[in-house]
Computed example of a mutant assay.
Amino acid sequence: MSRRHHFHIDHLGHSVSATVQTGHRSVVEILVDGKETGHAAIKDDQPVTVPVELPTDPPTTVTVRAATGPGEPHCLLLATADGEPQVMAPRPY
């Protein structure tokens, strides 16, 4: 059975959201300010990284790392400027 998990974080004044769909075909979709900017298939429950650009001047590249387990899926925002991974908060919808 397929299930969707939603995550969100605000970074540099922009909204970054991730949807991780688990089940027969696991995928992650990344939205920046409500627009899809990246997606990837998750194979064998291995973590996947998806690079995206924030529409700053100049554009800022960040990476979202999504994992389906163990346990519940989770996402991290990896920003190249500060180097510290930031946990993306789960959304209950």
Rank of each mutant, 00 (worst) to 15 (best):
G23V: 00
V50P: 03
P59E: 06
M1V: 06
P51S: 05
T56D: 10
Y93C: 06
E72I: 11
S15F: 01
P92E: 06
V52W: 02
R4M: 09
P58E: 06
H24C: 07
E36K: 12
V48N: 04
P58T: 11
L31K: 14
S26T: 11
S26E: 12
Y93E: 09
T56R: 11
V50K: 06
T22S: 03
A79G: 07
P85N: 09
I42G: 06
R4A: 12
V16K: 02
H14T: 03
R4L: 10
R65Q: 15
P92T: 04
G23R: 00
L78I: 15
K43N: 13
L77W: 03
P73Q: 05
I30Q: 05
P85M: 10
A40T: 12
T56N: 05
Q21L: 07
I9V: 15
D10Y: 04
G23Q: 02
G13M: 07
L78A: 14
P92M: 06
G34W: 14
T56C: 09
V50D: 01
V50M: 06
E84N: 12
P47Q: 05
T22N: 01
V64L: 15
A40Y: 06
T37V: 12
L78Y: 07
H5I: 02
S26A: 15
H14R: 07
P73Y: 08
K35R: 14
R25S: 09
V62I: 15
T61S: 12
P59N: 03
L76Q: 15
L12P: 01
E84C: 14
C75V: 13
A89Y: 02
H5E: 07
E29P: 00
V20S: 00
F7M: 07
A66L: 10
P59K: 08
R91T: 09
T49E: 13
A79Q: 04
V64S: 06
M88L: 05
V48W: 02
T80N: 13
P90H: 00
G34H: 10
P90S: 00
T60V: 13
P92V: 02
P73I: 01
G34T: 11
V28G: 07
V20P: 00
P73L: 11
V64C: 08
E84W: 10
V62D: 03
L76V: 13
T22H: 01
L54V: 09
L78E: 15
D10F: 04
H8C: 05
V32G: 01
T80M: 08
K43F: 15
R25N: 09
R91W: 05
E84L: 14
P73A: 09
G23Y: 02
Y93D: 10
V20D: 00
H8N: 05
T68D: 02
T19W: 01
R4P: 04
L54W: 08
I9E: 03
Q46T: 08
D82L: 04
L12G: 02
T22E: 03
V32L: 08
D57E: 09
T63H: 12
R3V: 10
V48C: 04
M1Q: 06
T63S: 11
V27C: 10
T37H: 13
A18H: 05
D45L: 13
P90K: 00
H8F: 12
T19P: 00
E53R: 14
V52N: 04
G13N: 04
E36V: 11
P58M: 09
P90C: 01
T68A: 11
G13K: 12
K35L: 12
P55M: 08
L76A: 12
H39T: 07
P73N: 07
